[in-house]
Each structure stands twice: as C-alpha cells, then as structure tokens.
Design a protein around this nucleic acid. Sequence first.
DNA 1: GAGGAGCTTCTTTTT
DNA 2: GAAGCTCCTC
Length: 769
Amino acid sequence: MEISFLNELNESQRRAVEYTSGASLVIAGAGSGKTRVLTYKIAYLLKTGMAPSSILALTFTNKAAREMKERVATMVGEKTARYLWMGTFHSVFSRILRSEAELIGYSKNFTIYDSADSKSLIKSIVKELKLDDKVYKHGFLQSRISYAKNNLITPDAYLANTDLIKADSSSRIPLMSDIYKIYCNRCKQADAMDFDDLLLQTNVLFRNHPDVLQKYQLRFGYVLVDEYQDTNFAQYLIVKKLAEQHEKICVVGDDAQSIYSFRGANIDNILKFKSTYQNAQVFKLEQNYRSTQTIVNAANSLIDKNAQQIRKTVFSEKETGRPIKVLSVFTDFEEGFIVANNISDLRFSDNYRYQDIAILYRTNSQSRVMEEALRKQSIPYRIYGGLSFYQRKEIKDVIAYCRLVCNPNDEEALKRIINYPARGIGDTTVNKLIECAQLHAVSAWEVLTDMLKYNLAVNAGTANKLAQFRSMMEVFAEQVSTQSAYDLANSIVKVSGVIADTYTDHSPESMSRQENVQELLKAIHEFCETKQSDGEPTALLPDFLSEVSLLTDQDTDKETDKDKVTLMTVHAAKGLEFRAVFIVGMEEELFPSPFCTQNERELEEERRLFYVAITRAEELCFISFAKSRFKNGKTNFSNPSRFIKDIDEQYLEIPVEAKPKQARISDWDNDLETERNRFQHSSPKPFIKENVLPPAPKRMMKINNSGGEKIMTKNATIPTGAFVKHGVFGIGKVLETSMVNGNEKADIDFGEKGVKSLLLKFAKLEVLE
DNA sequence: GAGGAGCTTCTTTTT
DNA sequence: GAAGCTCCTC
C-alpha cells in the first residue's frame, strides 16, 4: 500500500514506522524525531485498517499525550483520533481501574491521594504509633513506600523480604514494614489510591482476574509507549502483560535521557528490551534535526563518559554553530544579572524573541534569583514548576470538600476541612475521632454517622458541632448524582463558608485567594461545557475529580503566555526545545546534586540530566557557574561542576580564569582573588548592595561584603591573635597583619587547612569576638 | 480551641 | 529563606 505521508520520513524513521509485525524498540537520540515516528506510526496503523479504539498509546505527561493526539488528528481526522486510547500511564489505568474497581475492593468513585495526602497520612501514622518523627522521617518513609509499590512489593512481601527488613533495621526504622502495612490499610479504608497504587492495583487487577486481563489484551491490538526509558517495574509489567499474546508493541525512548530513577524508573527496562521480547527489532534514530553540530557534538562528548548506555552516533547536518559559552561569575546575583544581559543582547542584536529562550536549572529554588534579575531588566518570563494552581491552599480546600462529598471515607479530605472554615472542631476532637475510627476499624466518617454507637468520647457541644458538619456534607452528597459538577461545587463553596472566608479582608493575599477560587469554579464550568458539547451526559462532580487529580502544573498552561522567557528545571524541560538555552548553577554541590554523588549509577543519571539540558538548545547554549551562592539562608562557596570538564573543550568558549584545572582549595582562593579583581574593574555597575547580604549574626563583626561596594571601615582591622571564620577554610587564628599596596593583609592559621595569606579586602571573614 | 511568636529544620528532580 | 513545628497566651 502506498501511503504518501511516509515520504516525509527519513529512511530509519520510515522503517521504524512500517514495522508492525512484532515487538520493536526505537532508540531515538535527542531531537531525532521521536514524536514524529510515534504519530506517523499511529496514523500508519489506522490507515492500514486498525480501529482507533484498538490502539493504546502511553506517555508520561498529559501534555505529551495531548500533543500527540492533536498531531494524529491532523493526519487522520479528529473523528478517528478521539477514539484512540491515548494518555499517561496514570490516567489510562485510573480509567480502567474505575470501571473494574469493585473487583479489587474499591468503589467506582475512589479518591486519588496526591503526594501531600500521602505525606499527611504517613505523618499521622508515625504520630499514632508514638514514634520519633526525627528518626521516622516522613520523606524517607514516603520514598520507601513508593519504592515498594513501584516494585510490586506488597506489605506482606515486604515483611518477608529479609534484605528490606535488614536495611530498615540498620537505618534504625525497624517499624517501617508496619507503617507500610498500616498505610495501605488506611488508604483502603478511605477508598483511596495514591499515585503508585494506580499502577500497583492495575497489576493486582490483572493478576487476580485473568478474564479482565484477557479482555484488555484483546481490546488493545497495538501498544505504543513513549519515553520507555522512564518506566518503572510496575509499568513494565503492565505493558508486558497487555502485549503478551501478540507482541504488537512498539516502545520509543532514549537511554541517554533516562532521568527519573528517583521515581522508580529502571533504565534496565530499555537496556534489556531485547531479552524481554526475543524477536524484537531495534531501530536507531541517530540524525538530530534540532541542534547545531557543535551542540550535538558537545553533548555526545559528555554522554560518552557514561559507561551504562546503548552506543549510538547522534549527528547533525545543520550548521556548525557557535561554541557553548561558559560564563564564570562571582555570585548567584551576578549570574542572574549576566544571564539577563545576555538575553537582552540576543534579543536586540541576534533577533531572538523571548519565547526562543529558556533558563534551565537543577532545583526550583534557583528560580528566585533569576526571576529578580529578569524583573529588574523588565524581561518578561514564565516560571514552570513550583507551586502549581492545584497545590494552592484555597484550591486544595475546595477540592477537599468536593472529594469528601463524593467519597465520605476520604480521611485526608475530612481532616483538611472538618475545621475549615473554623467551626470549633479542634485537633483534640479530630484525633479522638480518628482514634475511635481506628479502634473500630471503620472510617472516620462512619463514626460521625453514629457517634453513640462508636462511643465517641466528646462533650455535647462538640458532638453537636460534629453533627452539624455531618448534615451539611450529607446535603451535598445527596446532590452528587443530580446536580452538575459546576452547580454542586458552587453551592459547596457558598454553603460551607469557604467563599466568605476568603472575603475577610482586602489584603492582596486574600484577593488572590478569591480569584483562585473563582478560577477553579470557571475551570469546573468549562469542564461541564466541554462534556456537554461532546454530547455526553451532564458532567458530575466525580467526573471532574477523576480528571483533576492527575493534572499537573504544565497542564494548566495558558496560551496567553506568548513572548516570554521560560524558566524551568531541567527535568521539566525534557521533550522541549529552544533556540537559546542558559544552563545556570553548574556547580559542585548543586549539579550534580550532592544527593547523587554517592555512587556511579546516580552520578551517571545526573550526567544524563546535563545531557538533556544541553540538547534542548537549537542554536546557542550557555553554561554558567557562580563561585558563591546564597543557599538555605547562608552563602556557600563552590567549584565549577565536574561535568563541564566532561565536555570536549573544542566545543566550549571558556574564560581564561575559569578553565577547570584540578580544583584544589588553596588554588581556589587565588582564583577568587583574581576573579574579584576582574569583577570590580569590569562590572558595569555595582549591583551587589549591602542589603543583599545576610545579616551578621550576633557577636560577630562583619569585615567585608562580597565584592561590589567597599564597606570596610577603619575599625574593622583585625587584631593579631583574634579568631576569624572563613567560608572555605573554617575557623583560624590571626598570626600577623600587614599592609600590601595599601591593602591590609593577614596571615591566618587555619589548622589542618594550613596558614593562608589573605587580603582583607577580598576574603570574607567574620571576626569571632 | 485559636492564633501568633519564635524556634528548628531542611533542603532534588514529579506522574 | 521558607515551611513546619512547638509553645505560649488569650
């Protein structure tokens, strides 16, 4: 059959698209047209006679799914495309779980706990068990539970696993397995699944109900998976089971862009695909259509340092392009300033629009300095990540009401709103309520429905308040199946008093809370309208909730954000591309993250992360590092990231003094001094002001600021014999002071670190009185 | 039980 | 620097 759109593909892309007779793995280098292959393959399957409802295409983000659906729709028509099973793992399988929920002991309207809900539940369990929350840290417990679920280890299997039990007792958390078990029971009791459950319970469903598995095996004639390198064991197994019979499966990914192991992603899934599917065909897409040769080659030279990888030769036939510019700066403030300057330059002399430019960083907390610098220079920007719309307090409050109305057993929702707005039901009462519920092995709501029966020990006044709350919720609950989602949500915010609570004053904060609540109502309204125009029955509140719980920040993207610079983490940037990219904060202790330098495997993942960052750039890439950075309330000194050295120098433009030599600390101090001199002389204007410095702690006298302006005073002279504190060398004793070219110099004994000669003008010293 | 002051801790990436 | 927590007062 001649299908004309295949001519729009290169040879290897075309071969990957046309192979549909068995399992296939498409290794798609960065920028090699991965999404193109997926969409064309789906179009090809449709053109060759497959029904759209037989095609299952799984992605990791809603955005990727939406974009792919749109692209398929332009090729085969919207009418066909809408019947495709296309979405994230979590959304597709939550849909399947809802229709099969009763089989595994959940109800159709089960709640999805987000990670804040999980965290809160874990905290209360630790508290109820009267454990020390400094030993049993909720973050660690949460990741441990997530790890277990991702690897399909049930609480019983956990208990039987001697390795895990040993690890827990050596981490001094021997009760970990109990917490895990209680956590699962509580979720079940609340009729709630957390994110990991959506995958775990799907596996449970398929394992315990072979007929159900078979139904879906027959339904899905072809399975496609995007970003396969990011799948975890639970996802791997779901996919494997679904494709077991026919092996009509195509996975697409790039092992070099595997950056989600912290979420359980297992790079082995892609590395060992060929042994899972014996007859699998492998296609490699190696031509990069995105970036200049320099950027591709630089990225190749970096990733070459990783041992774990599927070797491939990514190449570009675009122009050579300019080298990657390395910017060495003194402070994080200067970094922001320089980046902002460069952005203005690009805009005026190289004709870049703001939307062509992105600033990428390792951690969200780095966005603040960048933001300030951009604002000072009136550069429009848009920050992705951080606190998303659905994580704001007022939004979570309203959603919690909705959740409780749809699922009265939802304990986390109940805890959140039982006393919001304040109605005199305090912590003591809530604790009693939950304790009582645990005692009788029922949900907290169940206790509320019959406080006498369960012997809830509260006084009459409190009992009355609880009863009032209960009847309010019952009135809402009665309307769940009759009122539209919008009408019900509207009466909830009015009757519950949430709206009134946001109108208490006229502060900007409460104004913005009002706006947000209105915005949410608008979103529910739009949701109902869309369903209606699709000819579906009236959208109910549970319908809205099932969609909203899997939305993320990126999905609330407004199209009104036109010409703005993009600020995001490198993780969030995966899959995106920009003409110019600034990768900031390329420092040790930051990128690679100090949590990931323990072993080679983690370090390689960080290197892949840097690889992802570089390959976002089409034309220009800038890498910057600061020698000092304000972090967690204090200034830290750091060295350039080891990863900069991993890039072949021929693709870099490095300022002389920033050449990464063996960064010995004693050399570093000299570098700092050179740098400070350079900075003082070349800086266009001093933008580091006194007030950006952290306040000097009591009993300490500040000798110097960090560069721009001299604030040293005569009486700041250090007496011989005084003890001083230095950011890098620690505490030392002043041996001698002298004047060098009009500058005061001190010889200081730092003990193990040796005796250093420092110019007081430059060295950041605190005198310990 | 509510709300605020002051202390401590803790820092990664997210469907 | 910010969020979370505890303790204190009303």
